[in-house]
Amino acid sequence: MNLTLYVWRQKSSKDPGRLVQYEAKDISSDMSFLEMLDVVNEGLIVKGEEPIAFDSDCREGICGMCGQVVNGVPHGPRKKTTLCQLHMRHFKDNDTLYIEPFRAKAFPVIKDLIVDRGAFDKIIQSGGYISVHTGGVPDGNTLLIPKHDADIAMDAAECIGCGACVAACPNGSAMLFTAAKVSHLAMLPQGKIEAARRVCAMTEEMLAQGFGNCSNHYECEAVCPKGIKVKFIAKLNREFIKAQMTGS
């Protein structure tokens, strides 16, 4: 199939960017979206032009490195699918695709479709862990965790930190990302001890990093490639209220 692409090109964070038109020719429907871009890039390199810069690593939907906005939707049109797992058979011949970087103040563009998601690391650094030292821990089975709780914790822990939630949010909020980590740890007995401090520190860091607030649009849930639910945002809110009421 043949496609017309409008791709965001931006030399560096300091330069202004713009959409540039490219023709993607003879694209196989078996290609993944990123392989389609690989093909376009090979063509550009041979012509002596600079290829389109974009992030990707594992290409099997788990590392969270890839992510672009395709026709207004982060990770493209297929539900619960990262861009690297989205295949071209979901597009039609002669389609026009707008390909843009994830946009948010907290995710400045580094080059073309690559953005800096270091703000996510900063949120985790502010408290997205259990403060345990290596060694000196009890046997894993001394801590009993109901299957139901462990399953919910795992639902939240599946977040791959790709940033699609921020890209989709009209407010550029990182609530779903933050909520997933807060909920994952707050569901587990070993994580409850620091839950109050954690939720306050992480939401504060989220604002400090320039993310917006949650307006409950649930756009994040709709684009999340791992299907993380907004019920975890409600859980974060509860954890926050609990923390405030207990004065911690």
Binding site: Y6, W8, L19, V69, N71, G72, V73, Y98, E100, R103, A104, K105, A106, A168, C169, P170, N171, G172, S173, G210, F211, G212, H217, Y218, E219, E221, A222, V223
Partner: peptide
């Protein structure tokens, strides 16, 4: 302020 630049193409799924 957290979302200074709009997308050239916008599509909402749930909002």
């Amino acid at each position: 302020a957290a979302k200074p630049e709009p997308y050239a193409k916008t599509r909402y799924l749930q909002a």
